[in-house]
């Protein structure tokens, strides 16, 4: 199997709340024979903050990353940039689009790049890990890599906003299914739920109810998601956005108090779930960084009972049972 290495753009949250995502992403990609090489000296994508100040500068931030990626990609590998944080993914895609158009903006960006000795030819395409897993590595290879099928685990995939909006490059913006297909490939049971791409209220406020502008709004939106996932029988919610994950995971205690309903929904990253199915060491998947991660017993004991599966008391998996489980603020 030839090994392909992609340029990886971790984004600022990889050092912080999204650390487990990056760790598990590296582990799973390596397990699937695909390399990730961190883009040297990458800069912040500008998120949605920079467009709120200056649109051209926001494009320029991402343009530098794209140009660096193209310049430093060895000839044998694709110049594609894999961005895991969906905010970064959207920002980079937007810059890629702006650079590709024949508009005054594009000329301005190219001239600015030239001023610091960079050039962008359009070879580096912005990709999301879900896209790579699904369309480059492929479901077959993923199925082959599974050593411990997560049979009977009901998984609600949460796509967040910017994975499929506004650029629906590999999935449907209204009813995305790419994560569900990956979930099914590792033997788990995808839960179909209508809120899978509805805003969690957290990403835009970088930190949800902690420092967000409107704690109430964020709590209500996140609560609606978690409640719906649990109503549809999900054992776990997985996502691919560092901020969504933090937002959904971290404030369940507060939400329970605020809305008067008990709430204890395990949340984590899609790649962590996949890594468990592939038998990857739990520390490498960053499971110890999660607050309330656990999978139901059936995941370990094999096939689920046929027919209507009775709700079981979920059992803890891995070293993730944190002493402070549920004790947020």
């Amino acid at each position: 199997m030839t090994t392909i290495t992609y340029t990886y753009y971790p984004g600022c949250s990889a050092e912080g709340v999204g650390r487990a995502f990056t760790e598990s992403l590296y582990a799973v990609f390596e397990h699937l024979g695909t390399g990730l090489r961190e883009l040297e000296d990458w800069n912040c994508c500008g998120a949605t903050a920079w467009p709120s100040v200056d649109q051209s500068q926001a494009y320029a931030l991402s343009a530098r990353n794209l140009a660096l990626a193209e310049e430093r990609a060895p000839g044998a590998d694709p110049a594609d940039v894999v961005a895991s944080c969906t905010g970064c993914y959207r920002a980079l895609l937007k810059a890629q689009e702006a650079l590709g158009a024949s508009t005054p903006t594009s000329d301005r960006l190219r001239n600015a790049l030239a001023a610091i000795g960079l050039d962008f030819q359009g070879r580096a395409r912005v990709r999301h890990p879900v896209d790579i897993l699904l369309n480059e590595i492929g479901l077959d290879r993923i199925r082959e890599a599974v050593v411990r099928p997560l049979q009977g685990v009901r998984v609600a995939s949460y796509y967040g906003c910017q994975l499929v909006r506004p650029f629906a490059t590999f999935d449907d913006p209204r009813n995305p299914t790419s994560m569900d297909r990956l979930v099914a490939a590792v033997g788990a049971e995808p839960v179909d739920w209508p809120l899978k791409a509805r805003c969690c209220g957290g990403s835009c406020y970088c930190g949800g109810p902690v420092i967000g502008a409107m704690p109430e709004a964020t709590m209500q939106l996140s609560y609606a998601l978690l409640r719906e996932a649990s109503k549809r029988g999900a054992d776990v919610v997985v996502t691919i956005c560092p901020l969504c994950e933090f937002n959904l995971e971290g404030f369940q205690g507060r939400m329970a108090r605020r809305f008067g309903h008990p709430l204890d929904m395990p949340t984590g990253f899609l790649t962590q779930l996949m890594g468990i199915a592939m038998g990857i060491d739990e520390t490498r998947l960053g499971l110890h960084r999660l607050l309330r991660w656990r999978l139901p017993e059936a995941a370990e004991s094999g096939p689920a009972t046929a027919g209507g599966r009775p709700r079981r008391e979920p059992a803890a998996v891995g070293a993730s049972t944190h002493p402070e489980g549920g004790g947020d603020a």
Partner: peptide, 27 residues
């Protein structure tokens, strides 16, 4: 404790380059 709070303030090497780029695009 979970290792999810980066306290080391990150910075890049190409800071001057980045500032030059931002200046150039606004020019």
């Amino acid at each position: 404790r979970q290792g999810r709070l980066g306290v080391r303030r990150a910075r890049i090497n190409g800071r001057d380059e980045l500032r030059a780029l931002l200046k150039a695009v606004s020019a």
